[in-house]
């Protein structure tokens, strides 16, 4: 079979005020057709009012094997959370 049709990642904003969220992917020859295909495949029931399509090849992802070294250290940094600090009740809500 000749030439593979490029893959695009599809992001949809459900309504204004919310950010675009990844919903899936689609194959299309170019960005114009990718938008049309994304509309047909991912918004048949009013799922959103705005679509982004991004070439899948343009996405750089973190390595799951490095997830521990990337993300676990923050688990120990409990002083980054407000509940780490004791404030007397008399002070009121802070």
């Amino acid at each position: 079979m000749s030439g593979e049709v490029p893959l695009w990642e599809v992001f949809i904003r459900p309504r204004n005020g919310l950010s675009h969220k990844h919903v899936g992917s689609i194959h299309a020859a170019d960005e114009v057709m990718a938008l049309q295909a994304a509309r047909d495949v991912y918004t048949r029931r009013g799922e959103g009012n705005s679509i982004w399509v991004v070439p899948s090849a343009a996405i750089t992802a973190s390595d799951p094997d490095q997830a521990a070294e990337n993300f676990e250290p923050t688990g120990e940094k409990i002083y980054r959370h407000p509940t780490f600090y004791d404030i007397p009740d008399e002070v009121g809500h802070m």
Partner: peptide, 27 residues
Amino acid sequence: VQDEGGHGLYLYAAAETLGVSREEMTE
């Protein structure tokens, strides 16, 4: 019928995340 086509496409995309291409599956 359009939904069924859409369901096929969601699923092909899910399979492709495992390293198989759409062209291979179609073949």
